[in-house]
């Protein structure tokens, strides 16, 4: 089945079985391997991408369901490897990356959540990332990084990425 979607701002077309998982279409057909597969059953959030602005596990979405949808993956966050977003930089500054496997999903979840709630409490951040598991259990620093970005955006308002 021919399916088109807007991926990271560009129109892309793929010819895949409609039930192929969006995760596999992104990784195998569009070479966007930043999106990871962890559990494959919607528990870990490693495969998290944005579909029409909503954070979803791409292992639980059939490609046929996203015909014409706007998709953002971790590759779409930074405009170049030298120009990371404030969220990506904060993950580095705060040591929020250990093995790195959960990082793409964590970034996408946090990115979507901060647009939904620009001034969250620490508890709200924890609730927001509750569907993203970090196998290194490095949650404190991840929460620190997200909190720091939210605070900085409050004090230095600019155009949020």
């Amino acid at each position: 089945m021919n399916i088109w979607m807007i991926v990271n701002g560009e129109r892309r077309e793929v010819d895949v079985p409609p039930m192929k998982r969006l995760l596999d279409t992104l990784r195998e057909d569009l070479n966007l391997t930043g999106t990871k597969e962890g559990c494959g059953e919607g528990e870990c959030g490693a495969c998290l991408v944005l579909v029409n602005g909503q954070a979803v596990n791409s292992c639980l979405v059939a490609t046929g369901q996203v015909q014409g949808a706007e998709i953002w993956t971790v590759e779409g966050l930074a405009s170049s490897p030298e120009e990371l977003t404030d969220l990506q930089s904060a993950f580095l500054t705060y040591g929020a990356v250990q093995c790195g496997f959960c990082t793409p999903g964590m970034l996408m979840t946090a990115h979507a959540y901060l647009r939904h709630n620009p001034d969250p409490t620490r508890d709200q951040i924890r609730e927001a990332i509750s569907g993203n598991l970090c196998r290194c259990t490095g949650y404190q620093k991840i929460v620190d990084a997200i909190e720091a970005v939210a605070k900085r955006r409050q004090t230095e308002p600019g155009e949020a990425p």
């Binding site: 919607g42 959030g45 998290l48 909503q54 954070a55 979803v56 596990n57 639980l60 979405v61 979840t109 959540y113 609730e127 927001a128 509750s130 569907g131 993203n132």
Partner: peptide, 9 residues
């Protein structure tokens, strides 16, 4: 019910 990522779908 589960978490936000699941509830979004």
């Amino acid at each position: 019910h589960a978490n936000r990522n699941i509830r979004n779908v």
